[in-house]
Nucleic acid binder design. Structure first.
Length: 439
RNA sequence: GGAGGGGUGGCAGAGUGGUCUAAUGCGGCGGUCUUGAAAACCGCUGUGGGCUGACGCUCACCGGGGGUUCGAAUCCCUCCCCCUCCGCCA
């Protein structure tokens, strides 16, 4: 969430930055400020009265100690009235505070000054391009055709098991998925300096609030329940991304400055309800309810936030370069950015069979927006101050779409799929063979 | 699922209604002594909020929330978490 002090002291600046998102959030500012004001005035009065009560209570203790009981009783009567007024003011302050905070949680992060202004995806500037669109001297297939022909994925039986939007990987398909996961993890651990973590896949609500998924996107998550006990419904959720648990690892902690930067890398499946999403009806792997992802998370000193963001994008790009895939990097404009982010790069890989670019990575610096929500701080060595670190997250990368780009790009005239060199040790094969007549 | 025990500062650990402004020990930081170090001694050592131009003043926090009381770490209610044993189980 945003810093209340910033809202108070630079109100117009906050309004202007929020307005660049084109989501109308700037209108909430006035109300937040009003609630904050009523909280503070009630608090100031309550605390003055509490100071008076504290000293009076001490006197009463003294009087009783000296057996001056009558004086003590009259003093008690005097203070009793104070208590009522204090309770009233405390209640006012608490109500204003929780209303203020509820509203604050609904206000997105301020876009960084370097982010292009714009309304939607059409306004996202392209930052750089790597490689070229693959061309074929035979009739190239799309990934659905390839997956069916090579029996990489059994779409029909996946749907039979769990409904549409769920995939059953089979044979080489399952092996390819697993090889990719291991390739990605090793790359980031061994070459990019990340530490591997393996988080729970079912996580508490506070994790979702911490990263800004909730309260706004509650309808997009799968809520779980313990057995038939409906009272447990909604206490835990299936993770929509490993960002949710991993970014929360150090929540409510005060890290030593020398612990920074923290760099985590985690594999997890990701579960998305995709309620109301247009594309889910599409056949194939582009938009599904469950997909695998290797996620990158960093906790860094605010001075290094943007430097580390650039490195993170490069870490994700390396994946696509090693796999010989054509991609472009775009910068999300103010109107297209995620809720918690101050600046986001998307990496889109070319999928020849689709004839489009597919988003396989989204790397964001959320600055102190999430660390403030989860009360994660670090102690600055020079003066002992507790500061909010920058929290970064990026996909390194999402698997299902990577799978699509890979098979569509590297398909061969004979129906096989050539495996890029760096992936071969993981798959223990140089090609996924074309189906034989017997199979 | 059943039974029991517990949650207090960075850590250990005392504290069952009133100088708790939380004892004591350990650790950490600074100082004295020393050629230097150790030991010893002395001092400091949590988080957040409010008010103030500032020095500062003040409030809250003993797992979370609520209650009783003039006054709660302490009494009551409730929730959460941890540990031990039993049962079931990959």
């Amino acid at each position: 969430m945003l810093d209340m002090k910033l809202l108070r002291e630079r109100t117009e600046f906050v309004r202007e930055r929020l307005a660049t998102r084109n989501a109308g959030d700037e209108t909430k500012v006035t109300e937040v400020l009003a609630l904050d004001e009523s909280r503070r005035s009630a608090l100031a009065e309550a605390e003055t009265l509490k100071a008076r009560r504290n000293s009076a209570s001490k006197e009463i203790g003294g009087l009783i100690g000296q057996k001056r009981l009558e004086e003590a009783e009259s003093k008690k009567a005097e203070v009793r009235a104070l208590g009522d007024r204090i309770a009233e003011l405390d209640k006012t302050a608490a109500q204003a505070e929780s209303a203020r905070d509820a509203l604050l949680l609904m206000i997105p992060n301020l876009p960084h000054a370097s982010v292009a202004l714009g309304k939607d995806a059409a306004d996202n500037p392209e930052i750089r391009v790597h490689g070229q669109k693959a061309t074929f001297d035979f009739k190239a297939l799309n990934h659905v055709e390839l997956c069916e022909k090579l029996r990489l994925i059994d779409f029909a039986r996946g749907a039979k098991l769990s409904g549409s939007g769920f995939l059953l990987y089979t044979g080489w398909g399952a092996r390819l998925e697993r090889a990719l996961i291991n390739f990605l993890l090793d790359l980031h651990l061994q070459e990019h300096g990340y530490t591997e973590v393996a988080p729970p896949y079912i996580i508490g609500e506070h994790c979702m609030v911490g990263v800004g998924q909730f309260p706004k996107f509650r309808d997009q998550a799968y809520a779980v329940q313990e057995g038939l006990d409906t009272s447990t419904m909604g206490k835990l959720y299936l993770l929509p991304t490993a960002e949710a648990p991993v970014a929360n690892i150090h929540r409510e902690e005060i890290l030593a400055e020398k612990q920074l930067p923290v760099r985590y890398c985690a594999y997890s499946p990701c579960f998305r309800a995709e309620a109301g999403a247009a594309g889910l009806g599409t056949r194939g792997m582009i938009r599904v309810h469950q997909f695998d992802k290797v996620e990158l998370i960093k906790v860094v000193h605010p001075d290094q936030g943007y430097e580390e963001l650039e490195k993170m994008v490069q870490n994700a790009e390396t994946v696509l370069q090693r796999l010989g895939l054509h991609y472009r990097v775009i910068n999300l404009c103010t109107g297209d950015m995620g809720f918690a982010s101050a600046k986001t790069y998307d990496i889109e890989v070319w999928a020849p069979g689709q004839g489009t670019y597919l988003e396989v990575s989204s790397c964001s610096n959320c600055e102190d927006y999430q660390s403030r929500r989860m009360n994660l701080r670090f102690k600055r060595e020079s003066d002992g101050q507790n500061l909010f670190p920058h929290l970064l997250n990026g996909s390194g990368t999402a698997l299902a779409r990577l799978f699509v780009a890979l098979v569509e790009t590297h398909q061969q005239a004979d129906g096989s799929i050539r495996i890029p060199e760096p992936l071969r040790p993981y798959l223990r094969a140089e090609v996924i063979p074309a189906p034989t007549a017997a199979a």
